[in-house]
Structures are given as C-alpha cells and as structure tokens.
Simulated scan of single mutants.
Amino acid sequence: MLLKDFYSVVQTTKKDGHFFTEIKIRKDHELYQGHFPDRPVTPGVILMQMFKEELERQTGRELKFSKANNVKFMAVVDPNVDDILILESEIEEVGKAITLKGNARNNGCLALKINASYN
C-alpha cells in the first residue's frame, strides 16, 4: 500500500467477470490535513493508485502503470460525507499486459472512470 493505513478492503465479490471491492477510507488519515484541512478531498491520483493496488491483489502480481486511455474524475470523494468507496473492475490479461476498465463510486455517485494498462 502506497499510503500506509489510508484504507482497508472490507470485501471483494466477483460477478459476471467484474470485481466489486468495498473500501473503507480512513477519514482521519494525515493526507487530509493538507488536502484540505477544512474540506477533505481524496486526490484523484490516490483513487487511481487504489485501482492499481486492488488489481495487484486480484492478480497476485506486482504491476507497473503503463498508460491511461481515459480517466475522468466525476465527483469529489469527501470521506466525511461517505468513507466507503466501491471499486468496480473489469480486467483483461493479454500476455504480460493487463487492461483495466474501472468505476469508483462514493455516496452513490460515480466519482471516477478509468481505462488503463499495466505491465
């Protein structure tokens, strides 16, 4: 985990080739002291990292980000409003490369859409 104790995985389920991972964000994490003290916002790069870490957990492989074809930040993830994040992942392995199509939802809203490749 890149950020020590930032989140914990509550559960992961698989349905129709998709992984659904429920993550609990630690809203008192020191990251939020700087981003931002009066209104905490989970940085987009951290959301992207969570997908990478979850993908590594699902595949049992250490991966390196290769490229993103499409990344859209759709809503702010404020842990004081809702500290549960749902990652939906669809993965495809071709040789050593893995492609990910993912959505992150928080407080019932789509927060992030990502299509990325990893090696």
Rank of each mutant, 00 (worst) to 15 (best):
D83P: 13
I84E: 07
R61M: 14
Q58T: 02
Q49V: 03
T12S: 11
R105K: 12
P43Y: 01
F6N: 04
N69S: 10
V10L: 09
E56G: 08
N106P: 10
S89Y: 14
T99N: 10
R26N: 15
D5K: 14
E62C: 08
G34S: 07
E62S: 13
M48R: 09
A111H: 02
N103A: 09
L55D: 01
A104C: 08
M50R: 06
Q58A: 15
K67F: 02
L87I: 08
N103S: 14
D16P: 02
L47A: 08
R39E: 05
E54A: 03
E88V: 13
Y32Q: 01
I86R: 10
R61L: 15
I86K: 08
D78V: 01
E53C: 01
E92F: 05
T99S: 15
L87M: 07
Y7D: 03
K72C: 04
E54Y: 12
L3A: 08
P43T: 00
I114Y: 04
K27S: 12
E90I: 03
F65W: 09
V71P: 06
F65N: 06
I86L: 11
A68Q: 10
E22M: 06
L47T: 06
V94P: 13
L2F: 15
L3N: 09
G60R: 01
Q11M: 06
I98C: 02
E62G: 07
V41F: 08
